[in-house]
Amino acid sequence: MRVLHRLELIASYLLLAAVSVLILFPIGIIVMASLKPSVEFMSNPFALPVRWTLENYEAAWNSASFSTYFFNSFSITFVSVLFTVLFGSMAAYALNWNFRGSKQLFSYFLLGMMIPIQAKIITLFILLKQLGILNTHAGINLVFVAFDLPLAIFIFYGFFKTIPTDLKDAALLDGCTEVGTFWRIVFPISRPIIATVVILTGLHVWNSFFLPLILLQDRRLFPVTLGLQRLKGEFSVDWPLFFAAMVMLMIPIILLFIFMQKQFIKGLTSGAVKG
């Protein structure tokens, strides 16, 4: 029995390691390429750099006022994720009360995800202009929140269902209001789910290119993804430079993921779900 367990463990590790290689290797190519001069990438894209250099990182950082763009990206991502989580969880919580029309409302939220962006981009632009929030962070934040709400509601809705009702009932009996129950009971024990939603919507906002491209015009308001396009020439791309910028773009998300992973574990050990 023990031997069997051992074998299974070894097999698991081997498999995990193999898949990790399949994932890390191509990403390694990007990182490697970002550390070599463009000429080397052109002649041999896959070899180790002959001359290791950080010049691409320096150039990427300097050439496109990256610090401003990074700040903008952080600000947009933070604000829109925060409100997506807040409004999304509230709506999902209420949708679980099964009032009349709740199912229809839930489907209504889902529909938004299915409409291709091409069908709404022009009218969205006109709307923002009419509201006077075109080319502002406020405008793009509102759009991101609205666009990510379906995803957030969808995920929250599914998981809130699994919260035992007696837990909520107990709180309500204790004299908690619905708002209080939501805030004190549901929100805290949903940390793994919140972490998931934060990561998934944060990722979406952080990486988005098309929406800010259309909705922002002032360079001072650009997020990094829009700054990146300035590194591309019209007919060519300096790939190592682009890769360097890409690696810089990845780092905050990796940190966020590692940080949020702790939430997964906490959610598990707090054991609140068991009630």
């Binding site: 409004f87 709506a91 919580y93």
Partner: peptide
């Protein structure tokens, strides 16, 4: 209270 913010934003900017 719970549904208004999400529904309003979503209706205005998506639907």
């Amino acid at each position: 209270l719970f549904l208004f913010p999400a529904t309003a934003l979503y209706t205005l900017f998506v639907m």
